[in-house]
Every structure is written in structure tokens, then in C-alpha cells.
């Protein structure tokens, strides 16, 4: 799966808003926020096949440096 860019010129604004949402939270609170956010975004996507593909992609181990 290759995910093309859907954010266009709004990428930086949206990323910044995500960081801002986490500001001042403890790590546990941030985890909880992320969980709620993922569930809401899943509801936005809605298509089970699409969600299954995204889950599979997200499980691929990162080659983190």
C-alpha cells in the first residue's frame, strides 16, 4: 500500500494542530488522546477493508534509526 498525499498545503497546519492537542498532557493522557483519536478517525474512514489495510500497514515494523 502506498499512501499519496491528501493534505496538500495544509499538512503543516494539521500536523501543528496535532502537536498542539498534546501540549501539557502526561504520557498516559497522550496515549488516551491518541486512542480516542484513532477510534474517531476509524469511524471517519468507515470502510472495513480500507481500515484492515491501514492496520496491516501500520503494523509493519519500522526501520527506526
Amino acid at each position: 500500500m502506498i499512501l499519496q498525499d491528501n493534505l496538500g498545503p495544509n499538512g503543516d497546519t494539521i500536523y501543528n494542530a496535532l502537536m498542539h492537542a498534546h501540549e501539557g498532557l502526561t504520557e498516559a493522557e497522550s496515549h488516551a488522546l491518541n486512542a480516542r483519536l484513532v477510534l474517531m478517525l476509524i469511524n471517519e474512514v468507515a470502510d472495513p477493508d480500507r481500515i484492515a489495510a491501514l492496520l496491516q500497514e501500520a503494523r509493519r515494523p519500522a526501520s527506526s534509526v
Binding site: I2, L3, Q4, D5, N6, L7, G11, D12, Y15, E57, S63
Partner: peptide, 9 residues
């Protein structure tokens, strides 16, 4: 590494 959307971020 894989996804163009993330490169833009």
C-alpha cells in the same frame, strides 16, 4: 520511506 503523504510532513 514508503508513503508520499508522510514525506510532505
Amino acid at each position: 520511506e514508503t508513503h508520499p503523504f508522510a514525506r510532505k510532513l
